[in-house]
């Protein structure tokens, strides 16, 4: 079946299977930043935005995003790079496999929350698992990025 979506500001028409999930569709169209690490909607690596909201692309049927706006990290290069510079300066991308999904959720958080506290930051990002870094470095990077002063 065909869907029309706006992917990173471009309108495209894609053929998708009825039981295909968005993460697979995106990867098959070359959006290889989208990673998957589970089958149970638990890891957050596949995070992209649908209509500017963070969602798990592994769990959304591609047919259901017909007519919607999809954003992957490839679609927000400037913002992603700005934050990635801080993240990498902290050394908090270890294997990097979780980073694109994490960054997408950090950017979504920045758009959604005003002056979040440390607890609010942690809560917002809980759905992004990372096995390498132990999360502390990611938190330092996010706080630097948002200008949260050490409390």
């Amino acid at each position: 079946m065909q869907i029309k979506v706006t992917i990173n500001d471009k309108l495209v028409t894609w053929d998708v299977e009825k039981d295909e999930f968005l993460a697979d569709t995106l990867r098959s169209h070359g959006f290889l930043s989208v990673k998957k690490a589970c089958e149970t909607s638990c890891c957050g690596l596949c995070t992209v935005w649908v209509d500017d909201k963070s969602v798990l692309s592994c769990s959304i049927l591609s047919l259901r995003v017909h007519g919607k706006k999809i954003t992957t990290i490839e679609g927000v290069p400037k913002e992603a790079e700005e934050f990635a510079r801080i993240l990498t300066a902290e050394g908090a991308e270890q294997c990097g496999f979780c980073s694109p999904g994490f960054i997408m959720n950090v950017l979504a958080m920045k758009n959604e929350l005003v002056n979040p506290s440390e607890n609010e930051i942690i809560h917002y990002l809980t759905g992004n698992l990372c096995r390498c870094t132990g999360y502390m470095g990611q938190l330092r990077a996010v706080k630097t990025y948002l200008g949260v002063v050490e409390g």
Binding site: I73, R85, T88, E93, G96
Partner: peptide, 12 residues
């Protein structure tokens, strides 16, 4: 910074 850091972080 790691020499591959930006590439892996931004999903290359």
């Amino acid at each position: 910074r790691k020499i591959d850091g930006m590439a892996i972080a931004t999903g290359k």
